[in-house]
């Protein structure tokens, strides 16, 4: 048998380095992108900084109440209020809003890129065959790996954190959009076609409305994945609850780490239940 150790080592690492080096020459493009993503981040952060904490808590509770009007989930509302008060009490409020900003920005970008990509995949088997392995790759490649080129392209701070989160968190949105559209019963597609719909009318009037709940499940998953990136992103300077956890690790501070971790859990549960409730809201 051929001993693979005796042949020359393939220079994969080299290739990738060259590729990244080559990409970094497009400074103008990446600067523009940095400014754009930075703009979104600042806008979210500005709003969160503007809203008084008590009002924020009232808004979250109010939205939950409205979204669950039929079921009246008082337990969830009580949890949200107590959880947010705890975060306030632990003095994590600004960190929490920074983390929320990171999650919302990543999810927004995932949505804007992921939904059209998912639609494209649903319309063409070839596109699907091309992107499926890419999506698998994006999701299974250890998230740390994205940090390195992210810093090369965007420097340090929130923007590379968002970049890495988007790559890691986008696949579920793409997949579920694709799946949701493909799951629309053939007969409904035929009905739409047989009455002379254009592709666009079919998409807007039939496919997307019927794929909505599957699509929203994908968005929910993307948000959860983005949240799971906050600690990793903190390593390249994305501020927030992740930074608290990261620092606690450095200082061997079990208590501090747990407190910050708990705040992430509370935030995760609130985001998860709220998006699910918004998804359920208009079903018949």
């Amino acid at each position: 048998m051929l001993n693979l150790m005796t042949i020359t080592k393939l220079p994969i690492a080299n290739w990738m380095d060259h590729f990244v080096d080559w990409l970094t020459q497009f400074t103008g493009f990446f600067n523009g992108l940095t400014n754009f993503i930075g703009g979104i981040i600042n806008a979210f952060q500005w709003v969160f900084d503007l809203i008084p904490i008590w009002l924020f808590i009232v808004i979250i509770a109010g939205v939950t109440y409205l979204a669950n009007r039929d079921t009246k989930k008082w337990g969830l509302i009580i949890f949200e209020v107590l959880g947010l008060l705890l975060i306030w009490n632990l003095d994590f409020w600004r960190d929490m809003t920074q983390t929320l900003t990171l999650v919302l920005t990543s999810s927004l970008i995932s949505l804007v890129i992921g939904v059209p990509l998912g639609i494209w995949m649903a319309k063409s088997d070839i596109v699907q065959a091309i992107f499926k392995p890419i999506l698998d790759f994006m999701q299974t490649m250890p998230a740390f790996v994205y940090l390195i080129p992210a810093v090369a392209f965007f420097g340090i701070g929130m923007v590379p954190g968002v970049f890495a989160s988007v790559i890691f968190a986008m696949p579920p949105t793409v997949r579920m959009t694709n799946l949701g559209i493909r799951q629309v019963p053939t007969e409904l597609i035929e009905a739409s076609d047989s009455y002379g719909s254009t592709e666009w009318q079919k998409l807007i009037k039939v496919q997307l409305p019927l794929a909505k709940s599957t699509l929203m499940a994908g968005v929910n998953q993307s948000m959860m994945l983005a949240l799971s990136m906050v600690v990793i992103a903190s390593m390249i300077g994305a501020m927030g609850l992740g930074t608290r956890v990261y620092f606690a690790v450095g200082r061997n501070d079990a208590g501090g780490g747990f407190a910050a971790g708990l705040a992430i859990v509370i935030l995760a549960i609130i985001i998860d239940r709220l998006t699910q409730a918004l998804n359920r809201q208009r079903k018949h």
Binding site: L188, E190, A191, V206
Partner: peptide, 9 residues
């Protein structure tokens, strides 16, 4: 066209 399983949205 009218469909077997009605094809209603």
């Amino acid at each position: 066209m009218v469909f077997q399983n009605f094809g209603l949205f």
